[in-house]
Every structure is written in structure tokens, then in C-alpha cells.
Design a binder for these strands. Sequence first.
DNA 1: GCGCCGAGTTATCAAATGTTAGCGCACTCT
DNA 2: AGAGTGCGCTAACATTTGATAACTCGGCGC
Lengths: 239, 239
Amino acid sequence: MLESLFLNLGQHDSLSDEEQALLGNLMAGERSFAAGQDIVASGSRPAYSTLILDGLAARYKVLADGGRQFTSLQVPGDFVDLYAFLLKTMDHGVIALSPCRVILADHSKLRSITERAPHLTRLLWLDTLIDGAIHREWIVAMGRRSKVSHLAHLFCELFVRLQVVKRTNDMSFHLPVSQAELADVLGLSVVHMNRVISALRNSGVIAWANHTVTILDWQKLQQIAEFDPTYLSMTREPR
Amino acid sequence: MLESLFLNLGQHDSLSDEEQALLGNLMAGERSFAAGQDIVASGSRPAYSTLILDGLAARYKVLADGGRQFTSLQVPGDFVDLYAFLLKTMDHGVIALSPCRVILADHSKLRSITERAPHLTRLLWLDTLIDGAIHREWIVAMGRRSKVSHLAHLFCELFVRLQVVKRTNDMSFHLPVSQAELADVLGLSVVHMNRVISALRNSGVIAWANHTVTILDWQKLQQIAEFDPTYLSMTREPR
DNA sequence: GCGCCGAGTTATCAAATGTTAGCGCACTCT
DNA sequence: AGAGTGCGCTAACATTTGATAACTCGGCGC
């Protein structure tokens, strides 16, 4: 059941049987959320952190004028709010974009891992660091990439991340979001989001129908995106 | 000499004398950089992490067309690349925006802290988590705030962060960046950056001359920015 | 079968933002 | 003093992006 988590953490360094057992003991309390439901509420002080087993979720903030911005997309094997363990107060919400099955990690157990299992602690820390690296990549995309390039970059990132946890199907992956939701990822209006999607489609590098994205030309997609996966730290080495 | 670091980490939870000593032992090897110099090079695999003692630095990425995007600003008391300890490879550079005095933390010593000092480890982890929280706030600002609001938000954030490490002077702080550099923070052209700055100036909430920003109306500035400092985790509690 | 509704799409116009160019001022170097 | 230079600032125009509205299409309930 924690296979996604093991795949995710295990891609960076080897996970011992003992560590896998510790993680197994850490995770308890499965929950399900319908699409559109809040998994974690902004302003709350959760006593546990949430791991996604199945589904797509997103962190978001809402502004006074009603504008919403997603700050990340979370796939199976991702902790959506591991940092709440130390940050204490959620300054944003986490929403299920599709039906989500999650499992909870008690903060007191996380704390005892930091007291007793330094290497596993470093791997969990690393997990949050990669989160930060993804944030930085998004900032660059929002600030200096063309919108088409930004979208292409997002697809590259999602494809690679989903591949790690075995949620791709050849060159396709499931992307259960509307164009309006995607607009809240890129920070665009819905109309312009549609124009950008059309442009990327017309360039022939992707197809997108029935909530499924198919990469038709991986080489060219990476080129448009200037995609360099270094920031995802996908090499296995001692940490 | 590590006063800024103690102020920075100590704002979130108390630092014992022992922990302060561990940090003192961790930090060694002072360096200086001129404005414009790279403190850490993109693509490198540093053996140490860098703490700013004095000056302003920034993380950045450069795209193929020459466009540059800053992904963070770093002030005294900040680690600019603490995550390199676990991420291993730098996927971006860090540049000194003003003359910078820094001090280095050996990764092997950082590692031994994670083995022996769980509470201090959590505080260092927390430091990187706040980094991430700032990134998320920047993403929101880039995606959904007006440019004037984004700039106002940046000033709010810098003022509060500099206050923590005692680098403000009443309602003023030193900001040694050109408008072109600021444009690379907000992701704007220089010309439009100038327009946005003019607009914020004309609203009478800030003054900015001689590399010094003065907040004339803190209340109104926060209002324009919709600034909520929750994400900076400035409350002292057990972590 | 009919009508409603959400999502995608397109058109039109307005506003925001970028590009290119040029001016002035303070500073520095000689 | 004179020339060069970096930086702030502005103008004119081009391009991108947003707002509003309308149309289509498919799913779904009645």
C-alpha cells in the first residue's frame, strides 16, 4: 500500500527494511476525499501529515478578490503537508482535484523518527527540499518562460514525477483537471489558458483528451520547456 | 558573529547553549564576495553550505534566451544553500547582490548534527521549510497579485525578515538592488518595473532613494499587499 | 425526448506588459 | 574639464493577456 512512498523516497537513496518498517508504522488512518474537497484546511494546525495513495491534489491560496493560485500539484507517493510537522500552522489549503485516497502520519511518530532514525529523517527532509526545488522551478516558469513553455514544462515535470511512481501508461498520463483549474496553476485567465493549450496542441507535441495527456514528441516537448530534471534529484546516492 | 543566525533560528524555538555551541563549531571559513559575484555556481556539488553574515544575495536561474529569474532573496542569518547538503547538485546559482560576507558549514558536520542533535536538526529543517513557504508566497504573488501588490508584498516580507535580524532602521531598510535586478525578481521588463515602482511611490506608502526603502504607511502597504506573515512562522513554540 | 448545465472554444474589444529608443543625471576615469 | 558609463525615467508603438459574451457539445436529470 505504501509502494508509491517507497518508490518516491527510494529513488534518492536506498531504504532499508528497517526504515520501510518504520514508515509502515508511521502511516496509519486511511481517508478518502471527493474531488473538490479540502484535504487540509488553511489556518488549521494538523496533528498529522497526509500522504497521497491515489488521486491528484493541490496546494492553494485564495486572495481577497477571489482569485485562486495553486502552488503545487501532488501525486501518489507525495506528502502534501509534511512540513506542517514543523511549520505548525497551515498558511494555505490543500484540495483534492480528483477523488483521493490518503493515509495519515502522526506528528508525534514523525518526531520520534527524527530522534531515532537520522538517515530516514534526512530522506524525509530531502522530500521537503525537493518540494522547494519544484517551487523554484515554478517561479522561474511563471516569471521568465513563455506561457506555452510554462505549460510544456509542467507536463514534463508531471510526466517524470508520475513515471517514478508508475502512474504513466507508455507516453500518457491521467490529468483529471479542467482548463479553469489549470489556469489557476499557471496564473492565467481561463480564456488565455485555452489559447495556450491550443497552441501547444497545434505544435503537435501533445494530445489531451478525456483527462488524459499523451506526449507525442518527448524530445520536442522538453525543448519547448527547456526541461532539465536536475531539480527533481532523481539520482540514487548516499544522503 | 553568528548573532543573525541565532536570531533567525531562535525566533521559532529556544536555542540551548549547547546548540549554539554546536552551530559555532559547525560554521567555519569566512569568505567575502563582491557585488555581482557568484557565491555558489549552478551545477556545482558544494561540500559546504553558506550562511550570510552581511549583505544581500539571491538565488537565480538563467534561461536559454538570456532571461534571468531570481527565486529568492537572502538576508543576513539566511543559509543560501542549506538544502545542498541533501540535494547534492546545485540546479541554480546564488549571486551576491551587494558585497557579501559569508561563513561556511561543512556538510560532514551538518550530517553529524543530524545524527546527534535531533532538535537542532529539526530547527535547520524548519529553516528550509520556511524557505519553501516563502517560495509558495512568491508563486501566489506572481500568479494572482497585481504587480503593484506583488511589489508591496515583497517590501513587507523583506521588512519583516530584516527586522528579525535587526537590519532595519525604524521604518527603513537598505535595499542594494537596481530596478533591473528587481525586474528579475518580479519577472517583469525593466520598463514595466519602473512603472510599477512609480505607481507604488505615487500611492504614498513607500519612498525609495539611495538604495534605501522607507515605509511611509505600514498599514496601507500591508493592505495593498494583502500581507499575512503567517507563512514566516514567526511564533516561538516547541518544534 | 427535452432542457439544463458544465466545460471547452471562439470573437471582440480593453487593459496590461514588452520592445525599442532616447534623454538626463550622477559618478568615475583620465 | 571632458568623455564614458550605469542607472533611472519616459515616449511611442507592438504584443500579450484579460474581460465579456456568445456558441457548441455532451452528459444528465426529469
